[in-house]
């Protein structure tokens, strides 16, 4: 970055990993915005395709990368849609944090650990659970909200499974292509 006088030069050294994260985050943000424009059959239910990118980042570059991709998506995405710091943002953000926490713990599992499907399912369910809890605590402390929980969780499991299969297909593609190595925490 250069200022107008040209007297000082401030430079960042962007690593290869930074570029990767930026690319993945950009992809996630695009999906995030596209999804927010999609009509939803039921309140609170979205496919959560952006989750695919987070899990891919986790499997390819580790948990820290997944955190960056996920948080950049939520913050930048909401800034672009104009929901930053609104309830919608608070819900997205809490869902993202819970997902990251759960997949972070999941990545500590010994042995072969979790694969794409397991990560996506966990992330999706944690996302729903956290959003639901935050919505109930902060916005709508109404007992009837619990009536929605089974439906939301069904959608969460369904979409989590679908995105897990998607990530698995992607990984197979990457592996045959470049082979970035085993996931690490």
């Amino acid at each position: 970055m250069r200022n107008d006088t040209g007297a000082h030069t401030l430079s960042f050294t962007a690593t290869r990993e930074d570029y990767r994260i930026a690319w993945l985050a950009a992809l996630a943000i695009t999906i995030h915005i596209a999804e927010s424009m999609l009509p939803s059959p039921l309140p609170g239910i979205k496919p959560g395709l952006a989750n695919v990118v987070t899990i891919a980042a986790l499997l390819l570059y580790g948990w820290r990368a997944a955190v960056w991709v996920s948080l950049l998506r939520v913050v930048v995405g909401s800034l672009l849609i104009g929901t930053f710091l609104t309830p919608t943002f608070v819900l997205s953000f809490s869902g993202a944090l819970a997902s990251l926490a759960v997949i972070g713990l999941g990545s500590l599992l010994p042995g072969r650990g979790l694969g794409p499907v397991g990560y996506c399912l966990l992330a999706s369910m944690a996302h729903i659970a956290a959003q639901f809890y935050v919505a109930y605590r902060l916005f709508i402390p109404h007992e009837a909200l619990f009536g929605l929980l089974p439906v939301l969780m069904t959608a969460g499991v369904g979409f989590g499974l679908a995105s897990g299969l998607l990530v698995r297909a992607m990984m197979a593609h990457f592996k045959s292509d470049a082979g970035p190595g085993a996931p690490t925490a």
């Binding site: 999941g106 599992l109 042995g111 072969r112 650990g113 979790l114 694969g115 499907v117 397991g118 399912l121 966990l122 369910m125 089974p150 969780m153 069904t154 499991v157 989590g160 499974l161 897990g164």
Partner: peptide, 17 residues
Amino acid sequence: MTRADYFVLAGALLLLP
């Protein structure tokens, strides 16, 4: 799918009912 994946899937499918 790893063993842990099946475990998570089974947990999810039990949770729903």
